[in-house]
Design a protein around this nucleic acid. Structure first.
Lengths: 213, 213
DNA sequence: CGTGTCGTTGAGCTCAGTCAATAAAAGTGG
DNA sequence: CCACTTTTATTGACTGAGCTCAACGACACG
C-alpha cells in the first residue's frame, strides 16, 4: 500500500523495477529548474507505471501516488527471458509503448494548441475512458483524486484557472461536481471540445509473432 | 526522393511500412478540428519515421517532408521475424520507443510549463544535438529547413511570436542567423534556458538479451 | 480549536495571440 | 535575365486568455 502523496520512485533513483497499478492512481511528473512541475501521465488501475524508465539506470521521472494505491512490482531483469522465449510478449510491449507515445502526442497537441477549457475537458475524458477500459464502474461519477493544482500541472495551467474552467464546464452542463465526485453529463460534447481521439480503436496486431508454447 | 512540402504519409492512410531517414528532414503532425496543427516530432537523418504507427492499421499522424529528403522504406511485416529470431533487436526497438517517449515527455514539459523563448530554445538545442548524434557536421551552423510557421506549430506558438523570440535569442547573443543558416553561439546558455536534458546519457542496456548468432 | 490544505472568487497584469502592413526571398513562366 | 506571383520573414499596434496576487471559506486532522 502506497499512501496518497508518497513518492513511489523519485527522479534519478534506480530503475531495477517497474510497476503495475492494482488500486488507486499514480502519476509521473518532472520538475523544471524554475520549480515548475509537469505531470506527464496518469497511471490508473490495470496500467503500467515506470516502465518507460526501462532503458536508463536512473529514472527519468518521479512517480507519485495521487491516492492510496496498491502496486505490483516487477523486476526489469525478468524482461530479458520474456523477449527470448516469448517474442509475442516483447512485440506487445513495443506495441503498448507506441500506444503510449501516441496518447502522449495527443496530450502534446492538447496542451500546445487548444484552450484551457479544452485541456481540462481532455483530461477528464481521457481519464474517464481509461477507467472504463480498466473495468472501473464509472457511471455514478468518478472519484477524482487530484487536486486542482495537480490538474493544472497536468494540463499546463494554474490551479486558479483550472478552477475557473471546471466551473465553466459545470455551467455549460457538461459535468457536475459534488463532494469530490465528478459526473460527466454530456460525454459526447465533452469529448468534442476536448478533441478526443480513441486510440484503442483500429489496432492492428496482425504483424505480431504468434504466441510460443 | 521526397520533395519539400510533400506529404509522405497522410493521417488515416495505411501503415504497411515505416521509414528510415537518409537525407533531409521530415516531421509528424496532427490536425485538430479547429484547423490548428501540432507538429509532434521531427525526423532527422538516421532516425526512424512513422514507426510509431505500427500498432494501428491507419496512421495516427501525417508525415511531411520539411526539406527534400531521401527515405528508406521498411515493411512492417519484416518485424515479425526479427522479434522471433533476434530478441535483442526487438528489445532495442522497445528501448528506442521508450527513449522517444521520454523525449516527447520533455517536449510536453517544455510546452506546458516554460516560456515562449525557452520553447524555441529547446527546439534549437534538441535539433542541434540530434544532428550531431547523427554525425551531421553542425559547426558551421545548421541549415534549418523549417519555416517560422512550422516552428510555431512544433512549439505551440504563432509564427509571429516565433519570429520575435528568434530575434530576442539573437539579441541575447545565443544564436546568429544569416540567409537561412542558424549558428548557435552559446550552446551552454541556450541549453540552460531550454531546460535541456540529455536523454542519451545514462542508458542502461544491460538487461537486453544478447545478440543471436 | 488551531493549523494546514484545498477550493473559490475578484482585481489587475502580462505574455502571447491577432490583425495588418511591408519587406525580403523564392519560385515561375516568358 | 526579367516581370510577376507566392511564400516567408519582420515589425508595430492592439487585444485577450490565462497568470499573479490576495482574500476568504470549507473541510480534515491532530
Amino acid at each position: 500500500m502506497v499512501l496518497r502523496g508518497t513518492v513511489l520512485r523519485a527522479e534519478h533513483s534506480g530503475t531495477r523495477e517497474f510497476y503495475i497499478v492494482r488500486r488507486g492512481w499514480l502519476y509521473s511528473s518532472m520538475l523544471l529548474f524554475d520549480g515548475n512541475r509537469q505531470i506527464l501521465s496518469m497511471h490508473l488501475p490495470g496500467e503500467f507505471a515506470g516502465e518507460v524508465g526501462l532503458p536508463w539506470d536512473k529514472a527519468p521521472f518521479t512517480i507519485t501516488a495521487a491516492s492510496d494505491t496498491v502496486v505490483c512490482v516487477i523486476d526489469k531483469g525478468a524482461l530479458r527471458g520474456l523477449f527470448e522465449r516469448q517474442p509475442r510478449i516483447g512485440a506487445l510491449l513495443l506495441t503498448l509503448a507506441q500506444i503510449e507515445r501516441v496518447t502522449l502526442a495527443d496530450r502534446l497537441a492538447s496542451i500546445g494548441r487548444t484552450s484551457a477549457k479544452s485541456r481540462v475537458a481532455a483530461l477528464i475524458v481521457d481519464v474517464l475512458r481509461r477507467l472504463r477500459a480498466g473495468g472501473e464502474a464509472a457511471d455514478g461519477g468518478i472519484a477524482l483524486p487530484l487536486t486542482q493544482e495537480e490538474i493544472g500541472d497536468a494540463t499546463g495551467l494554474t490551479a486558479v484557472h483550472v478552477n475557473r474552467m471546471m466551473r465553466q464546464l459545470g455551467e455549460d452542463g457538461l459535468i457536475a461536481r459534488s463532494n469530490g465526485r465528478l459526473r460527466v453529463i454530456d460525454e459526447a460534447r465533452l469529448a468534442g471540445i476536448a478533441n478526443h481521439i480513441d486510440r484503442y480503436a483500429g489496432l492492428d496486431l496482425g504483424w505480431l509473432p504468434p504466441a510460443a508454447r
